[in-house]
Design a binder for these strands. Structure first.
Lengths: 212, 212
DNA sequence: GTCTATAACGTGATAGAC
DNA sequence: GTCTATCACGTTATAGAC
């Protein structure tokens, strides 16, 4: 009976904590740190402002949790596919494009959120971002790319070149979607189709650019 | 003598006003509306906080001026070249890439600034951005593109397709420069060379993608 | 026009009851 | 754990002297 109570207690705790985190993710990602008011998060979570501080001590602490979580989400989309021993580099490019598309279709606000905090000089983001260097340079992806160059299969360019192409063509259309929607005079649904229709084309286009 | 005094008066006024605007551009573009404190602008302009409000009434008013100015700067980079009657579409693509590169090399913070305020739902930006629709659809650029498609010279795709490619490949590397610098393990100077070395390649790559 | 001093306000955080 | 009420602080904006 004591255990029963404890479990119930913990479940309830986790429930509220998760509700706050879920709300915080939405609002922080949509508006950034400075433009977000903790009151709004509390309201969106259906709880009181005081309770938010009870769980997370401060706005900054809560933010850092959301920030790290978001960075992980963003990086995970590529880390796994980049280190798959079983796939070719060509297949990896395809998979990265695919996984970014599915992530960003669901959460298009992530890149702007991350880059914005990076520009503000947020220390936590910078540390996380540092990790990307290792991830790339020590990845199976990087090795395969270097191999391809040695064999004369790919043009001799830094890995950064390829990564820039991939990220530019996959991420930017999501970041700039409000702008591009206006230019193209499309609504949300139509723009979504537009982006989807680009997906395979983008992959092929990138692969084609690898040739010497 | 009265006129002399008036001119002097006006010159001094313009001087201070411009100093404030210059400072505001720097800080607003670097940190966004919410994260900017008017005190910082005043300090950077070498004047007092009260004086800032004397000239611009409020933070919001000052911000809107900077915002519209920035949007104009951003849009102007393409509007002019897009409507040049004397150049071919191929030359226009080349020129747009060039003008964006020179603008963003000097002021790399502009795209993030604009997209960030657009995401916050800023009314003024949205109105300005609306103008882009007309600018593109009624441009010489758009006409030439449609002509090319009719002649079977280009693949049959919406103009938005081409615009997305151009913007993605030219703008994103500037927006994500802190991130990409870390990934590539390069310093500011080296990354600058990297971007410059991509310029011509990007142009050719885009042109190549026009083919059916 | 420009300053100093201060009012007015918004927001993050806490005290204390339940 | 959760709430209401309140404090504490930073920031915008203004009043008033020069």
């Amino acid at each position: 009976m004591k255990k029963q109570k404890l479990i119930q207690h913990e479940e309830k705790t986790i429930g509220t904590e998760q509700k706050i985190i879920a709300a915080a993710i939405n609002i922080f990602q949509a508006k950034g740190y400075a433009a977000t008011r903790t009151r709004d998060i509390a309201e969106a979570a259906g709880i009181n402002l005081a309770l938010l501080n009870y769980y997370f001590r401060s706005k900054e602490k809560l933010f850092e949790i959301i920030l790290l979580h978001t960075m992980d989400e963003f990086m995970q989309a590529m880390v796994i596919t980049m280190n798959d021993e079983k796939t070719s580099l060509e297949k990896k490019v395809e998979n990265v494009v695919l996984s970014y598309h599915s992530l960003l279709t669901e959460k298009p606000g992530i890149p702007l959120f991350v880059l914005n905090e990076l520009r503000q000089g947020n220390h936590a983001v910078m540390l996380k971002a540092m990790g990307l260097k290792k991830i790339f340079n020590e990845s199976v992806f990087a090795t395969q790319y270097q191999e391809g160059i040695k064999k004369g299969k790919y043009a001799k360019r830094p890995v950064l070149w390829l990564i820039t192409n991939i990220m530019s063509l996959t991420i930017f259309p999501f970041m700039a979607s409000p702008l591009l929607q206006m230019i193209g005079d499309t609504d949300y649904k139509e723009y979504d189709r537009f982006i989807k229709s680009r997906r395979d084309y983008v992959t092929k286009w990138i692969l084609q650019s690898l040739k010497p």
